[in-house]
Every structure is written in C-alpha cells, then in structure tokens.
Design a protein around this nucleic acid. Structure first.
Lengths: 106, 106
DNA sequence: ACAAGATATCTTCGTTACCGATATATTGTC
DNA sequence: GACAATATATCGGTAACGAAGATATCTTGT
C-alpha cells in the first residue's frame, strides 16, 4: 500500500467523506505534503471498493453539486491498522539508526 | 519512495552493506514482513546510485564469493530523514483516528 | 456583466518502482 | 548426491500513481 492509499484510508477512518473532501483532508493530515490528484483519488477509490476496504455510502446534492460519500469497512479499518503498524516499525527503525548516525556511530 | 527503498536506506544508515546482507537486514528490521527479491534490491541499488543517495563502497572476496558493498551518502541520509518524518506524520494521524474509532467516535 | 477561483466528479495515458521468475556459481550440511 | 544458504544479476509484467484535461455549478471580486 502506497502513501496516497494509506492516507485515503486514514481520512475515512474518522468519518465518511466524498472525493473532494478527501483531497482537502489528506492535504491537511499530511501537513500539505500530499496533494491528491483526481486520477489518483478516483482510481484508488474504485480499487479499494473492489477490494472491499471501502464502500459507497450516501449521495447528497449540495448547492446543485453531487457529493458521493465513501465509508471505510471493517476490513478496511483492519488493513489500515496492519499498514499503520508496519509503517510504525519502519519509522522507528529508521529514526533510531539516523539518531545513532548523528551521534557518530556510523 | 516505497517501502523496500525506504528499508534499504534505513539498513544502510547504520553501516555499509552488500546486497545479500541487505536482504537479511531488511527482513529483520521489518519484523520479517519484507523479503526483498533480487530484482527489487539490485534495481533499487542502481536507481539510488543514479540518484546519488547511495554509492558503491568496497568489494571483498569471502569464501570465493564476491561481496559488493554500498554506502549511504549524506544526500541519502537527508532523503531518509525527510521520508521518515513524512511517514511518522502519517502513522500518527492514522493511529489517532483508529484509536478514536475504536472508542466509538466513528 | 465578466473573470477567476473554489467546489465536485470522471477519464485517458504514460511512467516506474516493484515483484516473480529465472540464471549462475560456490560453500556447507544432511 | 541433493538441498539449503550465500551471493549476484537480468528480464518481463503490472499495479499504483501522476499529469493532464473534460465537464459543470456556485461564489467572489472588479
């Protein structure tokens, strides 16, 4: 699982969201580092839906514009949990080695 | 940067290593979750060398088998630092939302 | 009235890092 | 004699991503 997909699942872990809302939320929770492109977003949403990690929720019309909401599934939350743990392990290993390196143990 | 590349840089942050040593070290520091394939490893090493994040170190002959060592560069350590911080932010966001979700704020 | 920007979805196409498979050769173990 | 471990390398396929653009409505500023 790559970063955009990881962040989409992370955004949906809080509450169901629609595509454009996801673009904004992902930008925010990544500290502005990840700006989802439509091709990335809708491709990922279709893929995650096929995999059962995400499912279409409701549809709303707000100010004449359609909003299609997506919701994370239990399987999606489980996958996110696994991926988060995986990444946490890598981050800790890297942080430790970088710190040691700076202290001169390189 | 994807996970295999991230873990290769992480492994090299501690000390110069040769290809096969990297496969073993990455398997260990990822908790056995990532088993680098030769195609992935040598492809990544070539790519990272082109990008200046890694550089060939020395070559040894041990028991008749050649060992080609690679060393992380200062640019590579910098890239690893950036990527680690990036991942740390994502992991914290995901952990927070997953925890909230488990408490029923979903 | 008009332009520009924000909101909102969707498609097509190219790139690339990665994985699977395979090849080669030596050493050590059962 | 067969198999696992050590060690490097190449080739082909693909899935996820990014770039770019199409479409349409609403809001804000001039």
């Amino acid at each position: 699982m790559r970063e955009p997909t990881f962040l989409i699942l992370t955004a949906l872990a809080r509450e169901p969201m629609h595509g454009y809302g996801l673009i904004k939320d992902v930008a925010q929770l990544s500290g502005g580092l990840v700006e989802l492109r439509p091709g990335t977003l809708y491709g990922a949403l279709d893929r995650l839906t096929d995999e059962g990690l995400v499912t279409p929720d409701r549809q709303e019309i707000v100010d004449g514009r359609a909003r299609r909401y997506y919701r994370i599934t239990d399987a999606g939350a489980g996958a996110l949990r696994d991926e988060t743990e995986r990444r946490r392990v890598g981050v800790e290993a890297a942080a430790q080695r970088l710190a040691a390196r700076e202290l001169g143990f390189a």
